[in-house]
Design a protein around this nucleic acid. Structure first.
Lengths: 340, 340
DNA sequence: TTGTAGGCGTTATCAA
DNA sequence: TTGATAACGCCTACAA
């Protein structure tokens, strides 16, 4: 079935394609009521849908937004399986569609040029999550489209940014534990990279300790990856050190979940024998037994805000303040922390 | 920064655009080694990337694949938050990119024409999940591109299909429970729609009961939605009927998770007081305490297979058998079922 | 082996 | 208020 084009509409309506184009693009003032009605009718009758490629070609804008999410370390698989990313993408897609744009979702291949897709499709803008090497950012700027970085601490006013105050979050978590009487607090975390989200949370943890005059013990830090498995292994290890610690702060709920399972499998009960607090408030935290206490950020909203910011930039109201927008954090008290 | 075009390459290499086009499209036999080298060099130097819109326009194929997933009932939010969908999308995206295609991920708006995006972007193919009304399928066929339906029981050889034997799965679950001595088995499920996945699982459950000469009691069926909340509420309700049932089969892990939490909040322990089996083996099942026994399907692989099938169809090796492909099912014994 | 020219479906410019 | 016509970047006969 051949798709119907603007020409078909023109012919059937007995007008030129210019006129049809005008009504399609809502320039009513250029068309008489009469022809407008006539054209609108054929438009409906034939159920005409403009070809986006053609449009994109002449206008140099595509109504396409790229969303880039990190992959597992072997670079094979999207991190969508991490609930954090699926929740944020969910928020992003909804908002994108609401604004009449279309979402391209992709990971980045290790060796290939990650920017191909930007140029290929003349993306109008992009939302990028996760951390990449410095050089990546320089290349990104050359593309010259609005870009929102989620949870990035890069210091470059070219980019729009959405994030949270991770240092504060880490501080809140540790301080909460301390307020419940805990002094021996282990930290379980993904790799602490300079200026990464995880480092900030780690720093917040340290600040809370200092403030309470608690000695910071590096042996209490278990650093590896943001995964259930890392948490699980650490839970197992930690079960041998029950004299040394009374609480665990995991810098991601996914890790915290693993920690709890690890403890459980060693016969150690949360929160009776040890307290655990997580970070993010991904949906599964409330599904756990016991439900997990955690630092909440509104992930879905984070996605939505990213899109709003991006579209503001694309459609150029021009009145956006670049730089960072920080979303609020709160602590959700559920059942995984006990006062001692 | 103006994007660089085939013309630029031609000019710089001192040849015509035809020649450039030929080398871009790998028609080496039409070009002398000499010019080939020269062009390839400028291609690299200028880091040329073909404009996909232009290509799509002339070739009528886009290298774009649409992936459509259901939304929550208010049609606002993608169901990506359901781990089942995020896992399958993860598999899909990886495979799509591996084949050099690009993924458009979208939900469908209630009132708008869901097919717009297909035509707008001349999608080369699509993968559709979830159930839609009959009429939807008729419209889909008119678009005339290869389409893979995931978990659909529609009977129309136009579509490629990937799924599992849901009836068998339901049967396996119930039979397993029965083999562990259970006779009073509640079913907690999303809405049972004719020819839907859920109905099949329900039917399997009934078959297992019959086979074991267990009276099927409609009062033991709790039908609502595929959600944690539904499971939770049902767990609460069921806790008042502990004499009547000894086990629960939830037709989705998400529901089962809720059921367990509901029980827990009523002071009833799984598996000591009641057994629970789920369906799907989404990633969180192993994170629960106790880890959940469930009917496993390989969700990630399901995504990958869908793409392979679709791309076979698009690139037209022509040797694909249409109709259904059923992926294997197995039972994963963890800790949520107890022998009685 | 290389180049010319027409066309894909739109929008935009300018003239009628 | 309407309509030719030239782009946009690319591919593909067909010619040279």
């Amino acid at each position: 079935m051949k798709n119907i084009t603007i020409k078909d509409i023109a012919k059937i309506s007995g007008v030129s394609i210019t006129t049809v184009s005008n009504v399609i693009n809502g320039k009513k003032e250029k068309v008489s009521q009469d022809t407008l009605d006539r054209i609108n009718k054929t438009l409906k009758d034939l159920n005409y849908i403009p070809n986006s490629s053609a449009r994109s070609l002449v206008q140099n804008r595509s109504k396409l937004i790229g969303v880039i999410i990190p992959q597992t370390e072997d670079h094979k698989q999207l991190l969508l399986q991490n609930p954090f990313y699926s929740e944020i993408v969910s928020g992003i897609e909804t908002k994108i569609r609401e604004h009449g744009y279309t979402m391209i979702l992709t990971g980045v291949d290790k060796n290939k040029d990650y920017l191909d897709v930007f140029i290929k499709w003349s993306l109008d803008g992009a939302i990028i999550m996760g951390i990449y090497k410095e050089q990546f950012y320089e290349e990104l700027k050359r593309i010259n489209i609005p870009i929102v970085l989620v949870d990035s601490y890069i210091n470059d006013s070219y980019f729009y940014k959405i994030g949270i105050d991770d240092e504060l979050g880490g501080y809140m978590a540790a301080k909460y534990l301390i307020s419940k009487g805990h002094k021996k607090i282990a930290l379980v975390t993904g790799s602490i990279i300079k200026d990464g989200v995880t480092e900030k949370r780690f720093l917040g943890y340290k600040r809370a300790l200092e403030e309470a005059s608690i000695f910071y013990n590096p042996d209490n830090v278990y650093e590896e990856s943001v995964s259930f498995e890392h948490g699980y292994k650490t839970g197992l290890e930690l079960s041998e050190r029950m004299g040394d610690i009374t609480a665990v702060f995991a810098t991601a709920d996914l890790i915290a979940t693993g920690v709890i399972s690890g403890f459980y499998n060693s016969g150690i009960k949360v929160p009776d024998d040890v307290s655990v607090i997580g970070f993010d408030d991904i949906s599964i935290t409330k599904m756990l037994i016991p439900p997990m206490t955690t630092i909440k950020q509104d992930i879905y909203d984070k996605g939505q805000r990213s899109v709003e910011k991006l579209i503001d930039a694309i459609e150029g109201s021009g009145n956006i303040i670049k730089n960072e927008e920080l979303l609020p954090l709160s602590i959700i008290e559920r059942m995984s922390v006990k006062e001692i």
